[in-house]
């Protein structure tokens, strides 16, 4: 092959764009993680203890979302909802689709966590006179979260990397900015290596953060 000379210069002088892209990725990931977790907690409790019809509705939501690609969900929110009267900007559509997507996974993971808690604990709590809402909040949720914390964090990290496809509906984030750079500099190897390093650093930062959370919230010994 034509001998290739690596030139990182054209990428490094654009580091400001890269940092901006990284920030956007962090923003999309974080907001959708918070919203997704909220949906997941609500979904898992409803799925486990809600009335039958509501539980079935949550199950249908989980199955529908988990079994179709995020890309299609993004297209639906951005391109189809306007015909039904809801026109969202690229960023809003991306946040909505990302949160609904993560929410389905979080629901399923947390449900498994709730299920892993021995039924005896619920019985014991009932006999102590705790109300259902108290049982869920004080007995189940933290334990369930702890039981499935690794799986949940794994899903969150997937979400962080998964934000890269929201450029399909013209939302800007790190991968989109990297692709812009490839088009400007035509140095795809250098750009992708640099961006891989940035993603690597972001994931490590999030992992450390998750690790920190677990030290704060799950201090008790089993």
């Amino acid at each position: 092959m034509q001998s290739y000379v690596f030139q990182f210069g054209p990428i490094l002088i654009r580091s400001e764009e890269l940092i901006h892209g990284a920030w956007l990725t962090v923003w999309f990931a974080s907001v959708s993680m918070v919203l997704g977790l909220a949906i997941g907690l609500l979904g898992a409790v409803t799925r486990s203890f809600g009335p039958r019809w509501l539980s079935a509705a949550v199950a249908a939501y989980v199955e529908l979302i988990r079994n179709t690609p995020l890309l299609i969900q993004l297209y639906f929110v951005f391109f189809t909802l306007p015909f039904l009267g809801l026109k969202l900007s690229s960023s809003a559509a991306a946040i909505l689709a990302l949160s609904i997507h993560l929410g389905a996974y979080a629901t399923e993971i947390l449900r498994a966590g709730i299920q892993s808690i021995p039924a005896g604990q619920i019985e014991a709590a009932k006999s102590l006179g705790l109300k259902p809402i108290q049982i869920v909040r004080r007995i189940l949720l933290l334990q369930a979260l702890r039981a499935v914390y690794p799986a949940l964090c794994g899903q969150f990290i997937l979400q962080l990397l998964g934000t890269s496809i929201i450029s399909a509906i013209a939302a800007e984030e790190l991968t989109a900015i990297a692709n812009n750079m490839v088009m400007q500099t035509f140095r795809s190897f250098e750009v992708y290596i640099t961006v891989a390093v940035v993603y690597f650093v972001l994931v490590q930062a999030f992992s450390l953060l998750f690790q920190g959370f677990s030290r704060i919230f799950f201090r008790w010994k089993i």
Binding site: F78, F79, T80, P82, K87, S90, A168, A170
Partner: peptide
């Protein structure tokens, strides 16, 4: 195609 879809959707 996505670009044109955005045009038709009024996005």
């Amino acid at each position: 195609a996505s670009l044109l879809q955005a045009m038709v959707s009024g996005q």
